[in-house]
Amino acid sequence: MSAAATEIPYDMEPHPLTRMYNGKFGIWLFLASEIMLFGALFSSYVLLRVGAPEGTWPIIGAPTVLGHEILNVPLAALNTVILISSSVTMLMSWYYLKENKFSRGQFFLLMTVLLSCGFLVVKYFEYNSKLHHYLVEFDAPLVVDGEQVSYSRTYPTAEGERTVHYLHGHITETVKDEDGYVEYYKFAADARKPDHGHAHDDGADHGDSHAGAHPEIELRPSDYRRMSNWGPAGSTFTGIYFTLTGLHGLHIVGGVVVMVYFLLTGGSMWKKLPDKYANRIECTGLYWHFVDLVWIFLFPVLYLL
């Protein structure tokens, strides 16, 4: 290589101390800081989970403490496969660039972008279904046509026992008065899953009368104490779920931006310095595999445990 006066040392050849070119060492240091960023949030997850009062994890009324009581495991498993595949296409892209096959390399980079977009689309559907699912809490049992439709759970607290009356379900229609205020919501309550484990149910819950028997209830704002969707403010679990998967999703978006940039400008970079372009794809790949690695831990922690 003809050494120009302005050439940056160890731009391409390994630095004697770090034994890698500087760009690669830089991305590794960045990933080290990323480990600590996600580490802090994983640690928060453990803290919140260990400290969660009994019966509130992942959400009030869930039969067990597993995340999949309110999350979609098949969709997340699909996303795991998509992300692992995108890691492999990213590797293939670098592999073919090293083999001096530029168009093949770019093809696999494009595949990586498409798979990443697939991941984001699946994530959109997952988020959307959470944001349209509601937890309603009542001060007293909700009685419709002489029949109790809400469920209840009793929790031990420092001041004695506290009973929460609640319903989960979807708003199917919002009816407003002429001033634009909500008059009532048409609410489709979830069919109740059978409880197992050590839930504290009151006697009224043990009949079969509730099992999906109330397709639609009219809920007036005066009827309930609090209605919240399964969004970040829905429960402690949904809060940390959205924080962790949201931060991870932003990393995916960031990766896609970089890859699209290389798809658009890769041609001219390749013509000037092909080896340097392959190195850039290697660094992008290192970041991408890290994002994949984070998901590999997020998936079981949030969905399966």
Binding site: R19, L31, F42
Partner: peptide, 23 residues
């Protein structure tokens, strides 16, 4: 990777596990 990055990352993982065990 046999260079110094291996040890930097090993230290990172150690801190990561410490963070997880803290709660």
């Amino acid at each position: 990777e046999r260079g110094m990055i291996f040890w930097i990352l090993a230290l990172c993982v150690l801190f990561f596990i410490t963070l997880l065990l803290l709660p």
